[in-house]
């Protein structure tokens, strides 16, 4: 890569994008071979190449595993990019997509929908749980934005404080909802809060894409300007960056990514912390490479993690959120102890 020259070239970007796509294809295809139900590799290949295969096998590969793997790629990629974006915005390498309380808002909405059976308007592929998850997340985005913006720009410190506080408030409300709800529904509520990709069909993918694509495009366009935030808002203004507008765009794009993926997959943790950190170690902190590599790396990581989670405990499936949470805690501590000073 062009790290030795310290300048990101078009060639480095194209190579990264091609490499990332290749990673998605290889990992995505590989994950189709594993699952709760053991299938012979030859049969999976036959399904994928359009050959003769039993309809049950074709059903498992095409309507269960494939949408799930695709969703894992999008959710993992979205979480990693959102994490990198919030880290740039807060100038803090320990920020995650869940730091700013957007996930907590989504969780409150989804939990309320599950516990009270809230009816939702029919909006394409959005079910009521996903609808209220999205609604809760976006309400919090609005509240945090109003609290943190000032005359000139967004204050990273205010943003952090507002987000963490709102997160705590939502957690308290979730406890209250759990307390007043029907105990039989608590199993579903708990399962949702673990974070998982337990979907049937392509509805999840279809509902996430319209949120992901514009947010990713916006961040791609602002990647170069995002670098300027690393040396502070004042210097960035002096360089010609419209800092207030940039912060708003990055905050909204990161929030929409988070809201979209949390509404469909629940609050899956630590992908948004581990992946940006690992990518920075490999390719450096320049957002023009960091963001696309986070998209591909985060997606591939979550697809593999989900495949492990749904295969290792057959005949039951473990929600992938449990696995990432167990991996993430120790990893977080490791960063804290060894690398914090040099990030």
């Amino acid at each position: 890569m062009s790290r030795d020259r310290g300048h990101v070239t078009a060639r480095a970007l194209v190579l990264s994008l091609l490499g990332g796509l290749a990673l998605w294809v290889v990992v995505g295809a590989g994950c189709l071979f594993f699952g709760q139900v053991p299938l012979a590799a030859g049969q999976v290949v036959r399904v994928l190449t359009g050959g003769e295969a039993p309809s049950v096998t074709a059903g498992i590969v095409l309507t269960q595993r494939m949408p799930r793997v695709l969703l894992a790629l999008l959710v993992g990629g979205g979480l990693a990019v959102a994490g990198a974006a919030f880290q740039a915005l807060l100038r803090n390498p320990l920020a995650t997509p869940h730091t700013l309380g957007i996930s907590a808002g989504g969780a409150l909405g989804a939990v309320a929908a599950l516990a009270f059976g809230l009816p939702a308007p029919s909006l394409g592929p959005l079910g009521p749980v996903q609808f209220f998850g999205l609604l809760g997340a976006l309400v919090n985005v609005g509240i945090i934005y109003m609290l943190a913006r000032s005359r000139r720009a967004i204050s990273p410190l205010k943003l952090l404080l507002a987000g963490v506080t709102l997160s705590l408030i939502c957690s308290a409300l979730i406890l209250f909802v759990r307390f007043v709800s029907d105990p039989h529904l608590l199993v579903m509520v708990d399962r949702w809060l673990m974070g998982g990709l337990d979907v049937q069909g392509f509805g999840g993918v279809a509902s996430v894409l319209p949120l992901l694509l514009p947010a990713l495009a916006l961040m791609g366009l602002e990647a170069n300007a995002m670098n300027q935030l690393a040396l502070g808002e004042e210097l960035a203004v002096g360089r010609g960056v419209s800092v207030g507008a940039l912060q708003t765009e990055v905050f909204l794009a990161g929030s929409v990514l988070t809201a979209g993926v949390v509404s469909v997959a629940g609050p899956i943790g630590f992908v948004g912390l581990i992946i940006p950190h690992a990518v920075r170690g490999l390719a450096g902190p320049d957002h023009r490479l960091l963001l696309p590599l986070c998209l591909f790396g985060g997606g591939a990581f979550l697809a593999v993690a989900d495949t492990v989670a749904r295969s290792a405990f057959a005949p039951t499936e473990m929600p992938v959120g449990v696995l990432t949470a167990m991996l993430g805690g120790p990893f977080f501590l490791l960063i804290l102890v060894t690398r914090l000073g040099e990030m």
């Binding site: 100038r91 670098n227 690393a230 040396l231 502070g232 210097l235 902190p285 320049d286 040099e342």
Partner: peptide, 8 residues
């Protein structure tokens, strides 16, 4: 001037 991340 804060110095976030490992820019060269």
């Amino acid at each position: 001037i804060p110095a976030a991340f490992r820019f060269s």
